[in-house]
Every structure is written in structure tokens, then in C-alpha cells.
Design a protein around this nucleic acid. Structure first.
Lengths: 278, 278
DNA sequence: GTCTATACCCAGATAGAC
DNA sequence: GTCTATCTGGGTATAGAC
């Protein structure tokens, strides 16, 4: 059956090209500027062809999200080697913020755009659980018909686990710190999941404000991250008290914005779009 | 000149009707669903008429933002009476988050939508200042021609001050705490503006995740707020150590979501739109 | 000051020829 | 499998009659 396999490979290849083009558009012009026509233009196919690989624009967006989750988690994994939980957690925090700064449109897409996109990363396996279904109806047709015919495509399926995994990494580090008695009292006295969620929210706040508010960090970003991590983890209590664990508390030496700009150009704001037909 | 005044009043009245309708649409369907056609429909005028009062859809959005800033600041003002700076700060934090939860679409609009909207609140008067102009071009025509003919319209002009004022309230409370020696060491050792920005970011993170991520707070929202404030302000160090200052650390008594729902219905996500022609 | 009508743009999605 | 052509529906903004 070599012929069928070749056809499958070709189909996969086109699928990847579509996703590549879509990613480039999102990165350059923002998610709002992503349209089927633009993707089709970019890969020099007709718009109709896209629908043989993805059920809808939303479907493509979800695939991009899955990639984003994987990318974020991939930046976390090597940091798990850090033995000291406090250092590990700080590295994770800095990596998280750096990811958001370096990939603004990707970060926007997966964490700031649409509840159904953001929710796809968290299976809800962590913590207590929720009431009030807030997800809503935005396209309940996650995968219908085509686009899932081929089994082993990259980052298509279990994107739910990725977000949970990232959160779990933080929970673990926090737990180690707690059992070692190295957390400030108010932080130590809550449930692990709550701790992790709250810390996550703090980091997300920094990134989100940075990406949305032009005049936000009047302070250098890593200063902000440093003081936030210190507030949560407490200053190191092994001797030499008072000082912060972060080197750049007043760090005027470092560049104001972490890596100046790495992958994505600065967020290109509006460019709105309309809703679809039937 | 009573005739001219009457005409002016009428013009103002229609302006208010437009803004009212726009606010209702944003609150009910989200900012993305706001369109000139819809506003015109709602007030039973033709779309063309709107352009006699506002230069563009963007202009209307800015006016709504200004209202939002004023509204947020108004919830802060009464809390300034609280004598104890720690209690004041906690009340401010809770009020901030509550505002975001009770007015999700308003909060989205002013803090999560567009850099040019969010930036309008902060004059940049606070803190060190920034480099890298990130604002961008989205409609530099803030006020041109009409719509500013009448002088005393509500919440039209100095919206820049409002955001700064809110931040300043937080800075002041933090300063009082610091001079009283009641801040944790890592938090006390940074500049006041940085402290305030970082705390603000933490609170924003909670609200932003709550509004965007369907499965985010597996913990009750006020638990999250409580532990965050405790992390920043430290547990009260006057005797009875260890315990948190916030009553609801494990508070299963309270409703999961603060006021169930007050003004705005739950965020109604997408509904995108396109960019305009010349 | 307000309207109708319209120019012009963009989008998502599909039918049916090839 | 791919395309052309098209349907349907949205949008901003303006010209010109009343």
C-alpha cells in the first residue's frame, strides 16, 4: 500500500504548509488578521482547498494553540533539572514571562484570546473543579469529518494535557518548597493548587499587561518578575537576610525589555473581522 | 442665545444615547460585536448620523473606555477613607478584582483589548518612563472636528489622569506600609512605583485569567485574591503569627464566584470584524 | 440634522466543474 | 484534490437629497 501512504504524506505536508502559513500570519499581524483567504494566498492554493484539511478557521486556530502549548511546555522541561526548587521555580517564572515577551502573538492566542482556546489547554484535572459552565458555544465542532483522518499529526490531539503538565511542574516545585519550610507563612498555608494558580496568575498579569498596555512596565520587566517571585517565594532565609534573591532589583544594567525582540515583531493591534455565515 | 443652547443640549442628548447603546452592546455581546450599524439600529437612527457625533467607531470605543476608567476609579475613592493602609490596600485589591468580575466586558475593553485604549488611561506620569514606542498607529485621530464642540461632556477629556490616579492610590498605601515597616523584606526593598505595578499586575492576572480561561480558578476567586494580597503584604506580624489576614483562605462558605453576576452577563466571546476602507 | 443609497471593503463557507 | 464562481453576510464611511 505504498501509494496510499504517499498520498497520506502529501496530505500531511499540505496540512503543515497551511499551519505554517497561518502561524506566520498570526505572528506577524495578530490573530485577528488570520483569514482563510490570506492563508490560501500565502500558500498559493484556493481557499476551498483549506477546507479539505481543516473544518474551519477555528479549527486552524485550535491547531495553532496546540502548537503554542507544546512550545511553552518545551521551554519548561529542561528547567525541571534544576535541583533547588526555589531556583527551579524562579527559572520557570522567568521562562514563562520570557516566552510571552518573545512570542507575543502566540501568547495572546493561547492565553488572552478566546476562552475556548485557552480552555483547551487545561483539562481541569488540577484542583477542585468548577461550577458555572463559562465556556460557551464558540464552535462546538472541534473535529468533525476531515482533518482527523490521518492519525499521527503533530500537536493535534491531547493538547489538554500540556497546560496541566505545565501547571503541575509549578505545583511540584511549590510543594517541595513548602515541605522544606521555605515558603512565607501566608503562602504556605493554602492548598497547593491554589498556590500554583495564584502564582501563575501573577506571572500572567505581568505578561498580559506588558502585551496590552503600552506604558505599563515603567520598570524593567525582569525587575518586576524578580520582585513578584520574591514576594511569593520569600527572600532566602539562609543567613544574609533581607536581600532579594534576584540580582536585578534595581538592575539598570540589563536591557529594559528582556531580549529586545526575538521571534515575533511587536504586537500589531486591531484589524478586526466579522462573524461567519451559517 | 437660548436657541443655540437648546440645540447643543439636544446634540449632547443624542451623543449620550449613542454612548448608552454602545455600552449596552459591549456589555452584552462584547467589544468585538460593536458596530456602527448595530448602534444605529439600537437608537433607531441611520448609521450616517453617528458620524455627526463621533468620528469613528474607534472614537466611540475611546469614550466608553473613559467611562470605564471613571467607573473603576469611583469604586476606589470611598476606600481611601480606610485608615489602616494594609486594610485599605486589601479593600482596593478586592474591589479591583470585583470590578473586573462584575463588569467583564468593560474590564476587557479598558485593560485587555487594545494597547491604544489601555494606554489612554496611563499618562505615564508614574514611574521611570519608557523607551520603545509600542503604541502603534491604530487611529491617531482621537478628536478631530465634531464631537468635541461641546465643552462639558462627561468623561470625555482627561481620561489619562484616571488610571494614574488609581495607581497612585495604591502607591500611597504601599508607601505608608513600607515606612511603617510592615512590608515583607523582598517587597519593601524595591521602588514604590515598581511595587505598585507588580501588585497591580498580580491582580490583573487574576481577573484576566478569570475572564479568559474557562477552567481557571479551580479555587474560589476571593481565596485567590486573599492569598495574593497576603503574599504581597505579608501576614500581619502583630502577635498571633502564621495565620492569614484573609478570612476566606479555605472559605468554602462563600459563593465560588463573587457576586454570581452583577451587571454584565458572562463574556460572550468571538464575533470578529474586519478593518475599514478609506 | 437626518436620511437613503451606495461605494467599497472583507470575511467564511460551499457547489459543482474539471 | 483542486479550482472557479458564488452565496451570504458583515462592516466603515461618505455623497447627496430632503
Amino acid at each position: 500500500m505504498g501509494i496510499a501512504e504517499r498520498k497520506n504524506r502529501q496530505k500531511q505536508a499540505l496540512r503543515e504548509r497551511i499551519l505554517d502559513a497561518a502561524r506566520r500570519i498570526v505572528v506577524r499581524e495578530g490573530f485577528a488578521a488570520l483569514s482563510m483567504r490570506k492563508i490560501a494566498d500565502a500558500i498559493e492554493y484556493s481557499p476551498a482547498t483549506l477546507y479539505l484539511h481543516f473544518a474551519s478557521r477555528d479549527d486552524i486556530a485550535r491547531a495553532l494553540c496546540a502548537e503554542g502549548y507544546a512550545q511553552l511546555l518545551a521551554t519548561f522541561v529542561p528547567l525541571m533539572q534544576i535541583a533547588d526548587p526555589a531556583e527551579r521555580l524562579k527559572a520557570l517564572g522567568r521562562a514563562y514571562v520570557a516566552f510571552g515577551v518573545e512570542h507575543p502573538e502566540t501568547y495572546r492566542l493561547i492565553f488572552m484570546e478566546d476562552p475556548s482556546y485557552t480552555g483547551a489547554a487545561l483539562g481541569g484535572a488540577v484542583g477542585v473543579g468548577k461550577d458555572e459552565g463559562n465556556a460557551g458555544e464558540p464552535s462546538a465542532n472541534t473535529r468533525r469529518g476531515h482533518s482527523t483522518t490521518a492519525p499521527g499529526n503533530a500537536a493535534g490531539e491531547a493538547s489538554e494535557d500540556l497546560g496541566d503538565a505545565a501547571l503541575q511542574i509549578m505545583i511540584d516545585a511549590l510543594d517541595e518548597l513548602r515541605t522544606a519550610g521555605r515558603l512565607p507563612a501566608p503562602v504556605a498555608s493554602v492548598e497547593p493548587a491554589v498556590r500554583a494558580e495564584a502564582l501563575w496568575a501573577s506571572l500572567h498579569g505581568i505578561v498580559a499587561l506588558y502585551l496590552t498596555c503600552p506604558v505599563f512596565p515603567s520598570a524593567p520587566l525582569d525587575t518586576l518578575v524578580g520582585v513578584t517571585l520574591d514576594a511569593w517565594l520569600g527572600a532566602p532565609q539562609t543567613a544574609r537576610a533581607g536581600g532579594s534573591a534576584n540580582a536585578a532589583v534595581r538592575g539598570e544594567k540589563r536591557p529594559k525589555r528582556l531580549p529586545a525582540s526575538s521571534t515575533d515583531p511587536p504586537p500589531r493591534p486591531p484589524a478586526r473581522r466579522k462573524a461567519a455565515g451559517p
